[in-house]
């Protein structure tokens, strides 16, 4: 795939923005529209953009982590967020919250951790599917 200089420069600045935006979407999900799913998708689109600008091999290097690892990590985090309450004698997937509010993040609790899992899985699968298809086309 050809890469254009203008595009790759633009993307360089766009990607951090997109990533931050995705994180923001994810964080506000508990109270406003958003959440792990949409957040993950936006993050994935950042990597897709990078790939369009710089090629898929570069994009893979840029990601640093193999998408399947991301998926596995996401699933693991989601599962662990469910298992943790069990150590406190609660049922599987029961939400546990810290009493005090954190800056920016607001309330912190296991459902939020669960949502991080969702975020990672969505990011992982989107990039995995896009990269696989793109490689196929080469």
């Amino acid at each position: 795939m050809k890469t254009s200089v203008i595009l790759s420069t633009a993307v360089k600045y766009l990607i951090p923005l997109l990533l931050i935006f995705s994180f923001f979407l994810f964080l506000r999900g508990h109270n406003e529209p958003g959440g792990g799913f949409v957040g993950g998708l936006v993050a994935a689109s950042a990597f897709a953009l990078f790939a369009i600008a710089n090629g898929f091999d570069e994009a893979k290097k840029f990601m640093k982590i193999e998408p399947i690892m991301l998926i596995a990590l996401g699933l693991l985090i989601a599962l662990l967020s469910g298992l943790v309450p069990m150590f406190f004698g609660l049922d599987f997937l029961t939400g546990i919250w810290f009493e005090k509010n954190f800056p920016i993040i607001g309330k912190l609790g296991t459902p939020l951790v669960f949502d991080i899992g969702v975020y990672l899985v969505v990011l992982g699968i989107s990039t995995k599917i896009i990269f696989s298809l793109a490689e196929e086309e080469k």
Binding site: I68, M69, I71, A72, L73, L75, L76, L79, G82, F92
Partner: peptide
Amino acid sequence: ISPFFFGILMMLFW
């Protein structure tokens, strides 16, 4: 949970 956990574990060590 158990097969899920082992499934994830295998994916982690893909």
